[in-house]
Design a protein around this nucleic acid. Structure first.
Lengths: 116, 116
DNA sequence: TGAACATTTTCCTATATGGGCATATGATGC
DNA sequence: GCATCATATGCCCATATAGGAAAATGTTCA
């Protein structure tokens, strides 16, 4: 089984670097596809597909403005991810100490293999 | 070009649901591979591969303990993601208002196509 | 050294992806 | 309706995955 469809999972949607760049580009500003494409250095069709994925997971909305379609940010979908990672906050501080202890253990001799 | 290798990008590493479950399982507890596999309902080799990916991006460390290899959480790699999503916090509140305005605009008649 | 346990690695398959190109669809204004 | 601009879709390719099965490697202990 391959990975879960990017179109249904926000984590997967933002796993693609260009899509993260798009979200950043849309902070506070609505932009037409061509403009996003230019900023990314991608062809318009590729950009359109990325926007489509972001739209499917709801991170972006579109509205018609004349001949153009303006894409805008709907960041609400990022909150769950922020919360999920936030649930590890207590550990990424603690990690330092624990790993330091582990390194010390290695240096004192009886550790087994390499770290990481 | 396909997506950046999951082995080098934390965003990509946590895009896989089972890997997220693994990280959760390792909160505050080191566990041997077999135990993780049991909890996930995956075969041991598949689990080993997921742990390998997490190890490559540094979200997990291993240490030998007798015949077993105990995996532990190193959550530091999640902080950048927390920060990245945090950079959108001001927008996921604002989004409500903006989208509400948009919806109102649609209902009042002159909007163009569908939302989202 | 050899047996037994724990985990990793290799090989294989079905599937999903990103991007390019060419083309279809949609929207505007005449 | 028609020509034109803006975007979306269909098709193709090279590549990356997840997971299974089988075999290889590593570790402990007698």
């Amino acid at each position: 089984m391959a990975r879960a469809a990017t179109t249904s999972d926000t984590f997967n949607a933002i796993a693609e670097p260009n899509r993260r760049r798009i979200l950043t580009l849309l902070k506070g500003v609505e932009r037409p596809v061509a403009e996003v494409a230019g900023a990314l250095g991608l062809k318009q069709p590729a950009t359109s597909k990325h926007l489509g994925v972001l739209r499917h997971v709801g991170l972006v909305y579109v509205r018609q403005a004349g001949k153009q379609r303006l894409y805008g940010l709907d960041a609400r979908g990022l909150e769950p991810i922020h919360e999920w990672t936030g649930g590890f906050e207590q550990y990424w501080n603690e990690s330092f100490d624990r790993l330091n202890d582990y390194v010390k253990e290695l240096q004192s001799g009886e550790g087994s293999k390499g770290i990481a």
